[in-house]
Design a protein around this nucleic acid. Structure first.
Lengths: 301, 301
DNA sequence: TGAAGACTATCGGGAATTTCGATGGAGAAG
DNA sequence: CTTCTCCATCGAAATTCCCGATAGTCTTCA
């Protein structure tokens, strides 16, 4: 009966978007923390309003109809505009209660986020951070509202994204203090031949210094590959292996390793991105300045 | 507690828009056919969500805050996009049930609408027409969703409006068959001197032939002014007065009057306008073609 | 100054909607 | 053939929404 406009709210559209992204009612229910029958009911209402099945069984999976794709795209834009509209224009850090999603990777988690969290706990204890790994899908996480802020060595040149450069990085070599190479300046020859632990970032990203090496016609003596720089010191210590990591990551390893300048330059920027959805939101803007400050401190230190 | 997104639906935004337009909760309640307390409750929720009073008492009236104006403007755009999204892509005239608003004036109501209604009753009995007077605010009625289609001798050159020219009109003189002027061709001199019933359309619109006259340096011998051409024949008959009305309006007066060519040309187009909100809607598109056909028939007849 | 009128805010009860847990049915995997 | 996963549906419980009544505020008019 009520195929009227009033049958729909923004929560329904959000559910629709999630179902579309997950391709699953049950998973959406879990994500939202509601019962599966609730999602089913919501989708049933959406089907009524749009006079379209939206999702049809096709073998094992639920496949979205063409109309559904259109609707999700449009309503996604609607949701973003709505969120931008609802975003508070002023807020008091001391009492504000909300959750902000940040998409980033290991580097940012160890260099920038810790200070951000300290500031937050002190000045805005009501802001809960939700950190997710960006890997290669940081941009889509942002557009899909899975995160509000994206930080990383990423380049986005499309319109519709706001950007602030946080700091610039470069690489250093790390090794066991007992390693003979620690005593002298590292030249290209030595660097190329040294057994190296290469961080492959899950295979989705190649460290800048490696690109530079390759362009110069060299390849590292890869003794081992790891997906992340986490706890590299534990791997390296007591061996003759070296590793090449961003300067500020090396610092987090403390005295367990020594750092030596890397003969290849791999300077790259760490940028912060966000969208119009959160641009006008006072708490988001505030957090962005906090992140900017934290990054500047990390750069100085 | 729930200052969350889920507190809001499109119906709330529509209520907000109405309150903003009316500047009154009670009046909005009347328009929507709900209790005043319901509107109050809805506005209270909106206030919560937007953290803004939205409307504040200022003496007798409720005045919208600046933030409220912004929100209304943005959510109005949102509502339009949403309605465009929900609009059915296909429909069966025989069973479709919906209401479509047309904003127009006397001319269209007597020349085009009657045939449209006949077609509708026959082919799409479930479509209810809501005709409102456009007077001078036809465009804002359209943008405020008070009507879906605007028909009239109006020119809209802004982007965002769709247009279809329905027909072109010109004026004729009408008078009692016993009037001596009915026997001969009407020249300028005779026309200017004849006692005339001038239709002033409530003071908001000047008939084209009058503008032409004025530019030529003439003024009518105004014996009487009426706001609308409705039942002009009853006024004219038995008098020496003439009136100048659009050709197809003159036809509706039947044999009670005779028509004579008017010495001043006042050719003007009758256009139909609509917006993106209803552009993709199958029933609206269908009705627009029905209106187009009806107008074409009116032009031929 | 006081009373009446017009308007919004708020309250409690009742109606409607939404949610949940349980269950059924359909398809895929083993 | 059984089991597992997933969505649809059902009845009951919880929540939300709407209404009528009433209180409070401001303006107007006597």
């Amino acid at each position: 009966m009520a195929s009227d406009i009033r049958a729909l709210d923004f929560a329904s559209l959000r559910t629709l978007r999630l179902v579309h992204a997950h391709g699953s009612f049950s998973q959406t229910a879990d994500t939202l923390g509601v019962a599966q029958s609730t999602v089913s009911y919501t989708v049933a209402r959406l089907r009524e309003v749009f006079s379209d099945p939206l999702f049809v069984r096709q073998g094992s999976a639920m496949v979205s109809t063409k109309r559904c794709d259109e609707i999700v795209e449009q309503s996604s834009a609607l949701l973003d505009k709505f969120e931008a509209m609802v975003a508070p224009r002023e807020f008091d850090p001391a009492v504000a209660a909300l959750r902000i999603g940040i998409s980033c990777n290991y580097y940012e988690r160890v260099t920038i986020i810790p200070e951000v969290v300290r500031v937050l706990r002190h000045e805005a204890p009501g802001i809960a951070l939700k950190i997710i790994s960006s890997t290669v899908q940081g941009k889509s996480q942002l557009t899909r509202s899975e995160s509000d802020i994206l930080i990383g060595p990423i380049q986005i040149n499309e319109p519709g994204y706001f950007k602030r450069t946080l700091l610039r990085e470069d690489y250093v070599c790390i090794m066991d203090p007992a390693n003979p190479l620690a005593k002298s300046v590292m030249d290209v020859e030595t660097f190329v031949n040294a057994p190296q632990v290469v961080v492959n970032y899950g295979g989705n990203f190649q460290s800048r210094f490696l690109s530079v090496m390759e362009r110069a016609g060299y390849a590292p003596n890869t003794a081992m590959e790891v997906p992340s720089p986490a706890n590299l010191q534990d791997i390296i210590c007591g061996t003759d292996m070296i590793a090449t990591v961003p300067t500020r990551v090396a610092r987090t390893f403390g005295d367990a390793i020594v750092t030596v300048a890397c003969p290849f330059r791999g300077r790259f920027p760490i940028d912060m991105f966000w969208t119009a959805r959160t641009h006008a939101s006072a708490p988001h803007a505030w957090l962005r300045t906090i992140i900017g400050t934290a990054a500047a401190n990390a750069a100085k230190a």
